[in-house]
Amino acid sequence: MEERPHVRYSALSSMQEDHRDRPLKDRRGTTTTSSAHEDLRYRFELHEDVPWKSIALALFLLAFGSLFLVISHFIYTEHMGGDSSQAYGFLVLGVLLFLPGFYETRIAYYSWRGYKGYSYSRIPAY
């Protein structure tokens, strides 16, 4: 008989017997096999619906973020009138709008093109 190494809290899964085909009894006393039993708490299904509202929001954020970044550049280089504080304000707003818009638009584009590892389920649906 093979001796098991000392395990302080619980046995390692590789050291235990395979209990998948052992019959189980539920509360009613009926016997089922554990391979037929599925715990629904751990079931996860990806929905492949296209989140149109989220994509529209991402395009909106991308467009206005780009616009604010261009305005910031024009104010800073004095092609438009304004203070440098206004340029920094537009710069901050442009970055805050551009980054999430670009990120979600990129995921939507790669999902549409069918790249490996990208799916519409990675975009939050609103």
Score class of each variant (00 low, 15 high):
M1K: 08
E2C: 06
E3T: 11
P5A: 10
V7F: 12
V7Q: 12
V7T: 09
R8E: 04
R8H: 07
R8A: 04
L12C: 00
L12N: 06
L12Q: 04
L12W: 02
S13C: 10
S14Q: 11
M15C: 12
Q16I: 13
Q16E: 14
Q16C: 07
Q16H: 04
E17P: 13
E17K: 11
D18F: 05
D18N: 09
R20V: 14
R20P: 11
D21Y: 08
R22L: 15
R22G: 13
P23V: 06
L24G: 11
K25A: 04
K25L: 05
D26R: 01
D26T: 15
R27T: 08
R27Y: 15
R28L: 07
G29F: 01
G29D: 02
T30G: 11
T30E: 13
S34C: 10
A36K: 03
A36V: 04
A36S: 01
H37W: 04
R41Q: 15
Y42F: 15
E45V: 15
L46W: 10
H47K: 11
H47A: 14
E48I: 11
D49Q: 14
S54L: 01
S54R: 02
I55Q: 01
I55S: 01
L57K: 07
F60H: 13
F60C: 11
L61K: 09
L61P: 03
L61Q: 05
L62I: 02
L62M: 01
L67T: 14
L67R: 12
F68K: 14
F68H: 11
L69V: 05
L69S: 05
V70D: 04
I71M: 09
I71R: 00
I71N: 07
I71D: 11
S72K: 00
H73S: 06
H73V: 15
F74H: 12
F74T: 08
I75K: 00
I75P: 01
Y76E: 08
T77H: 05
E78C: 07
H79Y: 08
H79P: 05
M80I: 09
M80D: 03
G82Q: 02
G82V: 14
D83C: 00
S84I: 15
S84G: 06
Q86C: 02
A87Q: 07
A87R: 04
Y88L: 14
Y88E: 14
Y88D: 14
Y88S: 10
G89I: 14
F90I: 07
L91G: 01
L91Y: 06
V92L: 04
V92T: 08
V95S: 01
V95A: 01
L96V: 01
L96C: 08
L97K: 01
P100A: 12
G101K: 02
G101S: 11
F102H: 06
F102D: 08
Y103V: 00
Y103H: 08
T105F: 07
T105L: 05
R106N: 10
I107W: 09
I107M: 12
Y109V: 15
Y110W: 08
S111E: 12
S111R: 00
R113S: 03
Y115H: 10
G117V: 00
Y118L: 07
Y120L: 08
I123L: 02
I123V: 09
P124N: 06
P124Y: 12
Y126D: 13
